[in-house]
Simulated assay, not measured.
Amino acid sequence: MWSDLAAALALLLVLEGLLPFLVPRRYREYLLEIARLPEGTLRLFGLISMLLGLALLAWVRG
């Protein structure tokens, strides 16, 4: 189980690093745009992201 968690974390880091590596200027602009969003919108995006991730995980592990 711990090896699965470590693999998932490693994949997360790889995916998170793609945009800053490939298009750093656009990534910076994107982060500034996100910083201007209201808290409620950020929370909604976070909730949707978590639910989609859980659904994908359940489907893959199912």
Rank of each mutant, 00 (worst) to 15 (best):
V60H: 12
L5W: 12
R28I: 02
A10Q: 10
A55L: 13
L47N: 06
I34N: 02
R43P: 04
L5N: 09
L56P: 01
G17E: 01
L12D: 07
L51D: 04
L19Y: 01
Y27T: 00
A10T: 12
A55Y: 03
R61L: 15
E29H: 05
L13W: 08
L9Q: 07
L37Y: 04
Y27E: 00
M1Y: 03
S49F: 07
F21Q: 04
L44H: 04
L44A: 14
G46T: 08
P38V: 06
P20H: 02
L13F: 12
P20G: 01
L44W: 14
E16H: 08
A10K: 11
V14P: 00
L57D: 05
Y27V: 02
R43T: 10
R36D: 05
A7T: 11
G46M: 06
G17K: 01
P20L: 00
M50D: 07
L51E: 09
L51G: 03
A6L: 15
I34G: 01
R43M: 12
R61S: 15
A6Q: 11
L32F: 03
A6C: 09
L37S: 06
D4T: 11
L12C: 10
L52Q: 09
A6H: 07
L15W: 03
E29L: 10
G62T: 02
G53W: 04
G46F: 01
L32K: 13
P38M: 07
L12G: 03
V14I: 14
V60E: 06
L11Y: 04
G62N: 06
T41L: 15
M1T: 08
G46A: 11
S3F: 12
R25F: 09
A35M: 09
L56E: 07
P38C: 05
A8T: 08
G46P: 00
L31M: 12
A10I: 09
G62D: 05
A6V: 13
G62R: 15
L57S: 13
L11H: 03
G53Y: 04
L12W: 09
A8I: 06
E39G: 11
L18A: 02
V23Y: 10
E16G: 06
L51K: 07
S3A: 07
L19S: 00
E16C: 13
L19C: 02
E39A: 14
M1L: 13
A58C: 08
E16A: 15
M1D: 12
L18H: 00
G17R: 02
E39N: 14
L37D: 05
M50W: 11
G40E: 11
G40P: 05
R28N: 04
L47K: 08
A55P: 03
A35K: 15
L11F: 13
E16V: 13
E29V: 03
A55G: 11
S49H: 11
R25L: 05
S3E: 10
R25G: 06
R43G: 06
L12V: 12
E16S: 11
G40V: 03
L32N: 15
I48H: 05
W59V: 13
E33V: 05
L22A: 03
L9W: 10
I34R: 15
S49Y: 06
T41N: 06
R43Y: 09
E16D: 13
G53F: 09
V60D: 02
A58T: 09
L42Q: 11
G17W: 00
L19K: 01
L19M: 04
G62V: 02
L32P: 00
V14E: 00
G40D: 10
E29F: 02
